[in-house]
């Protein structure tokens, strides 16, 4: 099968690009895909700590493009899954240390050995963004249900189209169903109306993300994690499976809802 290069981007920082990359990468490896995740946030690398691989870094992406080491010397093998790899960003350089042309060559090189190449894009629309999208053939845009995030996502979708990336999907991250029910948070339809892009998944706000990031263990490894479950379903959709998008089904924790459930069960 032909390999996919997927860039994970958002425009705005702090909406969950790196968390999304780590979880989708891990979930895809659980589906027996050979996966490499590239951290392109040069100067502010973080994908390594989210994955718990920070102690294994010897070489980084800048070393690879400058020819200081071979590509496979810089690839870090995940401790949990054979097929999962990380190409870390450099921490001491800046975004101009790599060019879009070099990124394209790099992703093409990785296509030979991997089924899925996930590119974790830095925040912003400058060279870091241009580098991250250079070799990609599809994009995942991550947005949270906030004005600032959706606005930036709109801008990013425009830039992705301008750069010839037609195949973009949206992940709505950190949705709080209680706030949506109260009318204090934009819902899925509000966001889709505005962004006109296809939705590939909705990830609920979930404390387990903080816990799993503390531990360096992606939430998809945790069966009970609701966010982890959402990411596992997204990864299956990425593999072409048709799964209904369960909006925010599980989070009916209000007393009234619990009563309703009990009544339904009793019947």
């Amino acid at each position: 099968m032909k390999s996919k290069v997927i860039v994970i981007t958002s425009g705005k920082g702090g909406v969950g690009k790196t968390t999304t990359t780590a979880n989708l990468g891990t979930a895809l490896a659980m589906l027996n895909q050979r996966v490499v995740m590239i951290d392109t946030d040069i100067g502010l690398r973080n994908l390594d700590v989210v994955l718990g691989l920070e102690n294994r870094i010897v070489f980084d992406i800048v070393d690879v493009v400058n020819g200081n080491c071979k590509l496979n010397q810089a690839l870090i093998r995940d401790k949990r899954f054979e097929g999962l790899h990380l190409l870390p960003a450099a921490q001491t350089k800046d975004k101009t240390a790599v060019t879009p042309h070099q990124m394209k060559n790099l992703t093409n090189e990785l296509r030979k050995d991997f089924d899925v190449i996930l590119v974790d894009c830095p925040a912003g629309i400058e060279q870091g963004f241009r580098n991250a999208v250079a070799g990609a053939d599809q994009a995942i845009v991550v947005a949270t249900p906030e004005i600032s995030s959706v606005r930036d996502a709109d801008r990013i979708i425009g830039l992705l189209e301008a750069s010839g990336l037609k195949n973009s999907n949206l992940i709505i991250n950190r949705l709080r169903s209680k706030m949506v029910k109260r009318g204090d948070m934009m819902d899925i339809d509000d966001i889709l109306d505005i962004l006109s892009i296809s939705l590939i998944g909705v990830v609920p706000e979930d404390e387990s993300i903080v816990v799993s990031t503390n531990r360096g263990e992606p939430a998809v490894l945790e069966n009970a994690s609701r966010a982890g479950g959402a990411y596992r379903r997204i990864s299956r959709r990425l593999m072409g499976e048709e799964l209904p998008i369960m909006a925010m089904e599980e989070e009916n924790t209000g007393i009234v809802d619990r009563f309703r459930k009990m009544l339904k069960l009793a019947r």
Binding site: I147, D154, G158, R182, G183, D184
Partner: peptide
């Protein structure tokens, strides 16, 4: 007004400018 309606309207308007 629900605050999400306010958010949606403000967003619509700001995107008219942005786009």
């Amino acid at each position: 007004m629900n605050s999400k309606d306010i958010a949606r309207e403000r967003l619509r308007l700001v995107l008219v400018h942005d786009r």
